[in-house]
């Protein structure tokens, strides 16, 4: 279990003359849930996009399964990791099932119909995301929460070892937040998938993660366990604001909310 599936060394990226990421290094072990947190503009989305292969003009090394990411063909990489972008409200008139089926792209050739394997993966993904009853609905008639579940289902249908997610539960109502959290938790703890997720909400990151990476101004501000990040003034230093740590009746870790004097 201690195999590093994602290895990042000295990752730096400049966009239009601005340093977005600066010498970020960390590794994710197979089966681990790693959250990326940090203030707005810290480079969280950029980091995920670098790993996903969307940004390509960075310096440093990113290895997936020990092999540098740029040595993979895009199709091959897509069988190892899938990506769920930040919800942006873009709609298109495809049915949920058609959209989830598009997750099977890396396994298909130009004119072959969906194989038995494809159908099994699509059905399993729809089942896990609780979308079986919505499978025939058009994507542009879904609520924001349902649409996000469809995006995650499409990534699950891709059947990859690694799931990369950019703020999967931001802007969702409480029920959908809970559904997304439960879905990712199952994917990681029961199916052994590796999850790297950007989280806006600290409490979500605390309860979901094995490890947390905090970015600030494009550099690593903290890398460690949820138990460690709530100690001392770590969070205050990352976010430059005061936090209240309130004992939780549910878990050993406290509930965190912003407030009080710095």
């Amino acid at each position: 279990m201690n195999r590093a599936i994602i290895q990042i060394e000295n990752l730096s990226l400049s966009l239009a003359g601005n340093d977005i990421l600066h010498a970020v290094s960390f590794a994710v072990t197979a089966g681990e849930y790693c959250s990326v947190i940090g203030p707005n503009g810290a480079g969280k989305t950029t980091l995920i996009k670098c790993i996903a292969g969307i940004h390509q003009k960075w310096n440093g090394t990113i290895r997936i399964n020990g092999k540098p990411v740029h040595q993979y063909k895009s199709r091959e990489l897509a069988t190892l990791q899938s990506y769920v972008p930040q919800a942006e409200g873009r709609t298109f008139p495809l049915s949920v099932e058609e959209f989830v089926a598009m997750g099977r792209y890396p396994y298909q050739s130009a004119f072959s119909p969906l194989s038995a394997d494809d159908h099994r993966a699509i059905d399993a993904a729809l089942e896990q995301a609780g979308l079986v009853n919505l499978r025939a609905r058009s994507m542009d008639t879904l609520s924001g929460g349902e649409r996000q579940m469809a995006f995650i289902a499409a990534a699950l249908a891709q059947e990859t070892q690694i799931l990369l997610l950019d703020e999967p539960s931001t802007f969702l109502d409480y029920r959908h937040q809970a559904n997304v959290a439960a879905l990712l938790n199952r994917a990681c703890r029961e199916q052994g998938k590796t999850v790297v997720a950007v989280h806006h909400d600290i409490n979500t990151a605390l309860s979901a993660s094995h490890r947390i990476l905090a970015l600030k101004n494009g550099a690593t501000a903290f890398l460690g366990t949820p138990e460690e990040i709530v100690q001392g003034r770590t969070l205050e230093e990352i976010y430059e604001t005061a936090f209240v740590r309130s004992p939780s009746p549910e878990r050993a870790l406290p509930l965190i909310y912003a407030g009080g004097a710095l």
Binding site: A78, M102, Q158
Partner: peptide, 17 residues
């Protein structure tokens, strides 16, 4: 189909965009 949904998504599904 994938490009219609978004270029980033197409790329991570394995399309050499």
């Amino acid at each position: 189909n994938l490009l219609m949904v978004g270029e980033d998504l197409a790329l991570t599904r394995g399309v050499p965009t």
